[in-house]
Amino acid sequence: MAEYNLDHDKLKKLETYIDNLQEKEGALINILHEAQDIFGYLSKDVQLFIARKCGIPAAKVFGVVTFYSYFTMEPRGKHVVNICMGTACFVKGADKILAEFKRLLDIKEGNMSEDGMFTIDTLRCVGACGLAPVVIVDGKVYGRVKVEDVEGIIKEYKQD
């Protein structure tokens, strides 16, 4: 596996996952989810490895990765801030929350902060509309977020 510029243990883990799949046909998206969980993002080498391992054309893997917004080819920060931009959140000012995160972290949507601590992303409706506007950091949901709250949320994660 030396041909891939990837962590050996992680690659082994992914390989084991793929080997253990009962149904390989059509498993590409589940495999990509697993790979993104393991590596944090889907680099070219990860995609190539999956393509060759599963006998799927690399172009197809790339086509799939770029189609789904859940997959990313960029390294992600230690903490991923997801701002919900569903309608319910939008009408309750999610755009202002997003702007505040961008301002305080000084990065654009989809990018990672210079210190590698944060990535800001948006997503479409997590189905917690009752709590709009909603922010999710590393899977933890913050509801009814106000612009003033943003600084506090960032602080919570800056410490570690």
Binding site: Q47, A58, A59, G63, T66
Partner: peptide, 24 residues
């Protein structure tokens, strides 16, 4: 992909940005 089975091309991205491209 279907006739020549070279599988060089795939549609990539989506929406207005969609285009046919080789891997990566």
């Amino acid at each position: 992909n279907e006739v020549q089975t070279c599988n060089v091309y795939s549609a990539v991205d989506r929406g207005f940005e969609t285009v046919v491209s080789p891997a990566f």
